Simulated assay, not measured.
Amino acid sequence: MFDEEDNNGLVLCDKYLPVEMLIEIFYYIADCKADLLRCLLVCRRWKMLMNHIWHKKTERTLGKPFPWNDEMPWTVYYLARTKKPYDRNLVKNHSGAMYKKHWDIPEWWLLDSDSERNWTVEEPPVGMPELPQTEPLFKDRQICFAIPYAQCYKVQTIVLTDEGIHPYILDTYQPPIEVSEWYGCRWDCPSSYHLRVKLFHNDDTMIDEFLFRDFLLGRKQNRWLKIEHVFKNYGPGLRRITFEHSSGMEFYRPRHDLKGIKVAGACVCVRNPQEKN
């Protein structure tokens, strides 16, 4: 049985090294996954030390505290350090810089007889004020998705484990998940905006959802608006999120040359997990 009081793993070349010193040594000489995996196999004490080392490397890389407990797998720290999934936007191509890449538009939504029923990209947004410069997503580029006269729909699925968020973190700490998007419409194109964000188990069972709908009339036209929501205490089992939005010019006589509703900066952000109370 492992005994925390003995010197197993602490005596190297007949020299006793305190735990704190070993952690510092391994922190600098074991800088790749293969090295640390080999160290895990030496003995029970070294296996415990490797978790402390990964935790220290993670906090150094992220530049902020990261939760610790004795039961946390080392892979939690490895993924957090290498993929840096927390406190960043997990939505790919949030404003159309890569046209419609990473977004899915179901075939049932597209009509062969109506080629205009689709999303386009505007750079800069036409008939709208500048996107807020206070928003980091728009600092270097003024670009947005726009839709024509007909209603449009698109969706993006985010698999949280693929992004580097370990199931242990999702199930044990349930970090807050912030979702947001900027939207607006031209002064001459009253429109509607719809957002639905869903949380799912691996088996496609829905855990929670956020629904939002806004009608852009009068003073709401010709300005950028932002919708925000935070998911908390959603329970264990979360593995993926769908971000879907649809919109259309429901109050205006259709004109094929107008792109009324604009959306930009779609965001899903998993916050850095905090210590449990």
Score class of each variant (00 low, 15 high):
Asp3Met: 02
Asp6Ile: 08
Gly9Leu: 00
Gly9Pro: 11
Val11Cys: 11
Leu17Arg: 00
Pro18Ile: 01
Val19Arg: 09
Ile25Lys: 10
Tyr28Glu: 14
Ile29Glu: 14
Cys32Trp: 13
Asp35Asn: 14
Arg38Pro: 02
Leu41Gly: 06
Leu41Ala: 14
Val42Gly: 03
Cys43Gly: 04
Arg44Cys: 08
Trp46Asp: 08
Trp46Ala: 05
Met50Ile: 12
Met50Phe: 04
Asn51Met: 07
His55Pro: 08
Lys56Ser: 15
Thr58Trp: 00
Thr58Leu: 06
Glu59Asn: 02
Glu59Tyr: 01
Arg60Thr: 11
Leu62Lys: 04
Gly63Lys: 00
Lys64Met: 12
Trp68Glu: 08
Thr75Asp: 14
Arg81His: 07
Lys83Leu: 12
Lys84Thr: 13
Leu90Tyr: 00
His102Tyr: 15
Ile105Gln: 02
Pro106Glu: 10
Pro106Ala: 10
Asp112Gly: 14
Ser113Phe: 13
Ser113Ile: 12
Asp114Pro: 07
Glu116Gln: 12
Glu116Asp: 14
Arg117Pro: 04
Thr120Asp: 14
Pro124Glu: 07
Val126Phe: 13
Met128Ile: 05
Met128Asn: 06
Glu130Met: 13
Leu131His: 04
Pro132Arg: 02
Gln133Thr: 10
Pro136Gly: 10
Leu137Trp: 06
Lys139His: 09
Arg141Phe: 09
Arg141Met: 11
Pro148Leu: 10
Gln151Ala: 12
Cys152Asn: 11
Gln156Met: 06
Ile158Phe: 02
Val159Pro: 00
Thr161Tyr: 00
Glu163Arg: 06
His166Ser: 01
His166Lys: 04
Ile169Glu: 00
Leu170Met: 11
Asp171Pro: 07
Gln174His: 02
Pro175Gln: 03
Val179Arg: 01
Val179Ser: 06
Ser180Met: 06
Glu181Asn: 04
Gly184Thr: 04
Cys185Ser: 15
Asp188Leu: 11
Asp188Gly: 08
Pro190Asn: 09
Ser191Tyr: 01
Ser191Lys: 02
Ser192Pro: 00
Tyr193Lys: 07
Lys198Leu: 10
Asp204Asn: 09
Ile207Val: 13
Phe210His: 05
Arg213Gly: 11
Asp214Cys: 10
Gly218Tyr: 07
Arg219Val: 08
Lys220Ala: 04
Lys220Tyr: 11
Arg223Val: 12
Trp224Pro: 09
Tyr234Gln: 05
Arg240Gln: 09
Arg240Lys: 15
Ile241Val: 13
Phe243Gly: 00
Ser246Cys: 13
Ser247Phe: 03
Ser247His: 04
Gly248Met: 02
Tyr252His: 15
Arg255Met: 14
Arg255Pro: 03
Asp257Thr: 15
Asp257Pro: 10
Lys259Ala: 11
Ile261Asp: 01
Ala266Lys: 04
Cys267Val: 09
Val270Leu: 03
Arg271Lys: 14
Asn272Ala: 15
Asn272Trp: 09
Asn272Gly: 07
Lys276His: 06
